[in-house]
Design a protein around this nucleic acid. Structure first.
Lengths: 96, 96
DNA sequence: TAAAGTAGTTTATAATATAAACTATATTAT
DNA sequence: ATAATATAGTTTATATTATAAACTACTTTA
């Protein structure tokens, strides 16, 4: 009846991060921070969890002498996101 | 951009409970237990949280000498569920 | 060169989810 | 009669999570 909800994605901030990354090629740490409204600390932790799950890649580089962290979705991340959306639907469907 | 996800509903088991109650007039504790696959302990705790939030009513009675707990949605619960679904959509929409 | 700013990470804490252990009563087997 | 098992939950202990505060490291500006 109810499908399992992937706990890595069933988190407001991680879901927001993935949602953004699904729609763009890649995103800077600060872009994610602004769009989600998260604190840097929280974002850092959740980005790391998504990376460890293999759902995103995290590339560390420099821009204008400052550290720059760039995130991008992986195939595995896309698949997990889509499966999560499907699973969620089993909870939201209104039986008419 | 992203709407807040009501933390009372953003929980797999509580969402499942509400999802069931949305579709029926009322439901017995054991019915919820079977449909959700939850343990009795976990279900008991989450039912209590939904009750304390004012999202469901919990009526304790007896059937065949045994305790019987019956749950039903409230107007507040319906509203919260519908708002949660709306909020979720801001995370799931695929920009084409 | 001190103060403030940028870009994060690490860590401590509070909140949550969950199952194990427990309570209370009923039924069934010996 | 009473011991064992079943029913219907609740309470509690523990593990996991989410989160912000504190911190690191470096850069720019006054």
């Amino acid at each position: 009846m109810f499908k399992e909800l992937n706990p890595i994605l069933h988190s407001q901030l991680r879901l927001a991060i993935m949602s953004i990354l699904i729609s763009v090629e890649e995103a800077e740490f600060n872009y994610l921070k602004e769009k989600t409204g998260a604190t840097a600390g929280n974002l850092s932790v959740q980005v790391d969890k998504l990376k460890k799950a293999g759902y995103i890649t995290v590339t560390k580089t420099y821009k204008n002498n400052y550290p720059l962290t760039i995130c991008a979705k992986t195939r595995k991340g896309i698949d997990a996101f889509e499966e999560y959306v499907m699973a969620l639907k089993s909870y939201l469907q209104k039986p008419n």
